[in-house]
Design a protein around this nucleic acid. Structure first.
Lengths: 336, 336
DNA sequence: CTCTCCTGTCGAAGCGCTTCGACTGCCTGG
DNA sequence: CCAGGCAGTCGAAGCGCTTCGACAGGAGAG
């Protein structure tokens, strides 16, 4: 292993000079800089991460806590994780992958050991047990999701309330009067994950404003569960002409069921999904959808965190505005 | 921040004693140990990761390099990543998430800086450009996937050749004579990703042995692309009664198409998939499948790596045996 | 021409931990 | 009763880096 001292000797300067060339924290003459850089290249020097962390008390690592539940749509998580890793690199940070399994202990461990400079938490519940710890440990952190109490916390999320409103608005504008919502798995609601409830909130309040009748049913996803859910919905509200789906695993089953029952999309029934763009485009009917901006969320989260670590900016709640893209699955409500 | 020295003082022992209590590398009397442990608890001490890494030249971090392509089935990657993180924790390691983006540079960076003690690489190509680096830097590593030349390398993967053979065997045993393979996206083959070619190899050689006619077509996945692929296949081989699908994104489209054409599964056509169990179970027809043991692969990879880091075990190629589960999508070939 | 102020460089003091050698008793075997 | 060994503890020397204060020399101001 090549060390700083060896580089210094090779370049004929002191160790501190090499360090300052690397960090740019003091001015260095052009000639010295070049000599040092050349030595670094020739010797293939890489600063030792541990030594650096010890001396500077900065690890240049961001911890990312991902849920290990499987009742959430996994590709979205993955996309966020990859966006976080990629964005972090552009700011000189690496990403440590923590699973939700360890829960609050992970927060303690990371904060205590100085393993990471800050952390990003995904899958935040309304009343998350990790939050008190975060607050008291003064660990720089950014949440992806929105808890009930955001005091002293920085959060990034899609504006799910506006998302819900947008879906209703679109369907109402097309003349639909009876709309059913196929939601996330019941467990998601029981856990009080913010986004599901906020979407519902948006859906409901806009429905009230537009005089639209709304029926919400959680749904496990998959063919069997979706069939049961849809049957119940149509039984209860036979006049339903619009569906809002917020569960990727129910999208395709729903379309198959409608087809099977001879209900044409979008002529007889309109479907609006809240899902990643890819799902909307690859479905058997190209779906009108509000897309889940996974990449953008990951990127924003990192940028907020880096700003905090640099002492810039403070606590802030960033809600990304939703965008509804009209595709082939929604159209005017059929005439009665 | 509480330090070792403070714990030592609080417990009335020397710093080295505390260190030995923590590491267990020298024997400590029961009374001393208890006193130290009590101080640790009372002060809320957490060893500083950087200092530890510097002094011991072990970071207790494993780097995991995930591809950031999206033409592979993402949930499998995620499942592997989570299994890696979880298993690593049980061995006292944390996981650093590297994206494929940086490519070989990431290997250099991690190996050079001592950021991680070892690495796990996913999505290995037959002639991967990261391998020479790995070999020359003597970085302890485990590959998930199988390159062309495995000398000096430890690899973990599903035995895809046996997987292919198993699929053919199953269909041949049911009397099918004409079988079509709907493969991964063309890009996957162009990249010479080992698993796709090995599966094909297994399929073909067993087909030859059993006298089965095999037609292989890569497929992008999604409804449109799959429709084109299937149409071509049925055009070229109208007598096709069996499908082997190795692209999760083509599974549901295929089933929908067959339904639409009035071909009943499994009465007229049998379908065997190579996919995660969840996909097979949640599909509109419960699929006969060879499952992708993502968790097991992640777990094995970590265990191989930890063994290496502990100086146990050497280079080894672990091929997990495939298992075919018969579900509702395959049955006897129809009588002509 | 002197005083001051930069600029560029160096030396040294840690950062918090691990680990090696050394030391002290005490136990065991001869 | 003593040599030898072992369990238990300590002190000190780093690990490779960052950073602070100091200092030399040259430039600009007076």
């Amino acid at each position: 292993m090549v060390t700083l001292a060896e580089v210094a000797q090779h370049a004929g300067v002191s160790a501190s000079t090499v360090s300052y060339v690397l960090s740019g924290k003091r001015s260095i003459s052009a000639t010295t800089r070049q000599r040092v850089e050349r030595s670094i290249r020739e010797l293939g020097y890489h600063p030792n991460a541990g030594a650096r962390a010890l001396a500077s008390s900065r690890s240049n690592i961001i911890a990312l806590m991902v849920p290990l539940r499987t009742d959430m749509y996994v590709p979205v998580m993955m996309e966020i994780a990859i966006a976080v890793a990629t964005t972090a690199r552009t700011h000189g940070y690496d990403v440590l992958l923590l699973t939700g399994e360890e829960g609050p202990d992970a927060v303690r461990r990371v904060a205590g050991s100085g393993l990471a400079d800050g952390m990003i938490l995904m899958d935040v519940e309304l009343d998350d047990e990790r939050l008190p710890l975060l607050r008291e440990s003064a660990q720089p952190a950014v949440l992806i999701g929105l808890p009930a109490d955001t005091t002293g916390l920085t959060c990034v999320d899609l504006d799910f309330k506006a998302t819900g409103a947008l879906c209703v608005e679109h369907l109402a504008g097309l003349g639909h009067r009876d709309v059913a919502v196929i939601g996330e798995a019941p467990a998601v609601y029981e856990r009080h994950t913010g986004f599901a409830e906020r979407t519902l909130d948006g859906l409901r309040s806009r429905a009230r404003e537009t005089g639209l009748r709304l029926l919400h049913r959680p749904c496990e996803g998959g063919y069997d569960a979706t069939a049961v859910t849809v049957a119940r919905i149509l039984d209860e509200r036979p006049d339903t002409t619009g569906f809002v789906v917020q569960n990727e695993a129910a999208v395709e089953p729903l379309l198959a069921l409608l087809r099977q029952q001879g209900r044409a999309v979008p002529e007889d029934v309109s479907v609006v999904a809240v899902c990643p763009e890819q799902v909307a485009v690859q479905a058997s009917v190209r779906l009108t959808s509000v897309s889940l901006p996974a990449q953008e969320m990951g990127r924003h989260a990192v940028e907020q965190l880096v700003a905090k670590l640099d002492g810039r900016g403070g606590d802030e709640v960033v809600l990304l505005p939703p965008a509804l893209t009209v595709r082939a699955s929604s159209g005017p409500a059929p005439l009665r």
